[in-house]
Design a protein around this nucleic acid. Structure first.
Lengths: 243, 243
DNA sequence: CGTGAATTTGACCGGTTTCAAGGGGGGTGG
DNA sequence: CCACCCCCCTTGAAACCGGTCAAATTCACG
């Protein structure tokens, strides 16, 4: 694992980074990793459950999530929280800043696990992302995927039963992890607590638990504290579509 | 009203258009309305409940909604539908195409009422929107608002009661209409059926009806078939935040 | 007036929440 | 090395918000 337990950042260059080719600047890092590396201003480790970005701020840096999970969310005064999306290794945070100038965050970002961030100045990023058509296109594709995921999550929360929502979310996360080679045969690290799933799906923790239990008893998934396995993709897809 | 009942497009130039200054190219239209007008390829009237853009397509044009309402949505095979947002006069459809190259729509767009669209080639639009910093900024601001609205809608659907959701949606729509001078003292045209509200809020038509009725009995709103009036903004805001 | 679409109302149902208590596992300190 | 503790998962029972089904009413419009 890339995580360091002692709190010191990993001394890995972009050239050796196994995640580099999965990022939005994957194509560029492939051709000139040292260029990307020279623009990296910081590699930082952040503890679990820490605020990374505050709602309303205008980011001056963008970050690549090197290890761990984070999530973006909005919160009500009384504590009710909606998680808008989960960030997994290789994600750019916040992706929108590469496209929307002066982007004022309409959400906050928090680390879920311990997290390692590679940070770039937004100005430097623009140099990277505005130079070639190929690079502009990478950003577009990433942003399109993200928007599509948000739209689907909205459909899930508004129109699907608890069972369908959980199934959809698990499938989305697995497919994103798989694209980054972080899922093998449907098995992957899954550090989110049931509380996080609840806040992402518009459910309560208790009911997420009951729903996961149903899926487990159907032998569609298996999981323990930090690991999730999809044991029957076809069935999970059926459930996700019908419910 | 700008609507034509006879099906022929209005013969209004951008110079005389009272909506022009509220669009994303408002600044540009103010300085050179004839330039904008020269790029307008089409003014078209579309009947209610017609598909304007299909899910999965890559738009070649962008449209300014000149009159009427439209909405974007995703649908399940069994007919369940989630409305992602409503489009009101002055909106650019789809706004994302101005920022994300080759944007493949993850949703469909349909007219709610009869609708008048001013259409521009995407290529021509780029000329308009990429030329000046001021113009790029306009797009950013519009997109930020839109993203923020989507995020809030997600919070509403996931974490608020029916009463809070309805209140939030009415406030959002009123504030957007007001910015375009389409709401006076909280009173505005409101062509959406209760079914549309239901599909936007993740509720059923019947329950939207009961919820609107509660707000009406509290004397917070008044409405008939095509007109909505917010009679008590403070109370509506309280309700929207607490529920 | 007549017709169909949209709103409104009533009775009942059920998915999800709420409240509350019990259990397990991993980390820490004695 | 064991005991304790905290966090999280798990389970049960009861309540409730919103859904479902069905019928009545109102409204726009021809």
């Amino acid at each position: 694992m890339p995580d360091q337990q002692d709190g010191s950042p990993p001394s890995i260059t972009c050239r050796e980074c196994r995640l580099g080719r999965f990022t939005v600047y994957g194509k560029t890092v492939a051709t000139s990793p040292d260029f990307i590396n020279s623009r990296r201003r910081d590699v930082r480790i952040i503890a679990p459950q820490r605020t990374i970005l505050r709602e309303g701020e205008v980011p001056t840096h963008i970050h690549t999530l090197y290890s761990g999970w984070a999530f973006r969310f909005i919160q009500l005064k009384d504590g009710r929280r909606q998680i808008l999306s989960f960030h997994i290794p290789g994600d750019t945070i916040p992706l929108e800043s590469l496209c929307v100038s002066g982007f004022r965050l309409p959400f906050a970002v928090r680390s879920l696990t311990q997290v390692t961030l590679c940070s770039f100045l937004l100005a430097d990023s623009m140099e990277i992302f505005q130079t070639t058509d190929a690079q502009r296109n990478e950003v577009s594709v990433a942003l399109q995927r993200h928007i599509a995921n948000l739209n689907h999550r909205m459909l899930d929360i508004g129109r699907r039963s608890a069972l369908g929502r959980v199934a959809q979310l698990l499938l989305e996360i697995e497919s994103r992890l798989k694209r980054r080679q972080l899922s093998q045969n449907g098995a992957f690290e899954f550090p989110a607590r049931q509380e996080h799933l609840a806040d992402a799906l518009g459910l309560t923790t208790v009911y997420v638990n009951r729903t996961l239990d149903r899926l487990r008893k159907l032998d569609v998934i298996a999981f323990d504290r930090n690991r999730m396995t999809i044991r029957n993709f076809d069935r999970l897809r059926e459930i996700s579509e019908e419910e």
